[in-house]
Design a protein around this nucleic acid. Sequence first.
DNA 1: ATAATAATGATAATCGTTATCAAAACAAGG
DNA 2: CCTTGTTTTGATAACGATTATCATTATTAT
Lengths: 137, 137
Amino acid sequence: MKKYSRQREMILQSLRNRVDHPTAETLYADIKTQMPEIGIATVYRNLSDLCETGQIVKIKSKNGPDRFDGNPEPHIHFECNSCHEIYDIYIHDVQTKKMDNEIQRLAENIGAEAESSNIWIYGFCKKCKLLKNINNL
Amino acid sequence: MKKYSRQREMILQSLRNRVDHPTAETLYADIKTQMPEIGIATVYRNLSDLCETGQIVKIKSKNGPDRFDGNPEPHIHFECNSCHEIYDIYIHDVQTKKMDNEIQRLAENIGAEAESSNIWIYGFCKKCKLLKNINNL
DNA sequence: ATAATAATGATAATCGTTATCAAAACAAGG
DNA sequence: CCTTGTTTTGATAACGATTATCATTATTAT
């Protein structure tokens, strides 16, 4: 039976208090400032547990270590091809419903049943798009 | 300047001759039967090169090592939550255009410019769906 | 408080992948 | 087809990320 742990709670809250998608190491470094005795294994262990219970989600970036997202609500991820930052894109409930229907129809093409989906968009983020335009002047 | 190599050609053809999405190790084992002298480093090296030139694509499965797809044409990936097999879902050009527009609109929500996108669907594949139904009888 | 059990932190081990480097393969010109 | 310059190869060491191990500590139920 699962027991409470100060560490797991801290990891969950730290992740929820961020808007970015940190790696286990980044989160570890961050938490260590407030809880210096914590070990890296505890961070990995609890991140895995929290994923299994659906409280957070693991996201696999194009390169580099896995990242974690404190928001388990379905949303879209955008990764910048230039700075590699990851951004969230939220859509309205109506649009989500429409999307879900479309996803279900696509799964039916191969006789499968969709349970969830994951959309990534790659390109230039707002910042990098502007920088690119300036350099082209 | 890039030189031809028997090994790179073999890797590309082997991958194209498959409908699944093998890991580097799987592909290596497969190729080794026809080209026993090939080394695992050569396989990784060339898979990276082929990705860079856009001839194949690297796909990051939910867990386990990276997988490779010999078909660079845009399509959707389906991963079975039960057997973890990965399937391709193809859509018509018209639908692709529509989808691309939608993706572009979503990127604009955060002031970004979409270049490409990647859609994953998770659920039960045809086989596992049938098995599940049989077990529930 | 006590006892039972689960979680921790240090660190060893593992896994997937990349880097190194001498030897072999390839490409171009004579 | 020989020579020279350049790239690729294969063996293996090194690396980074993650998981496993295990004695100690924290949490929970009684």
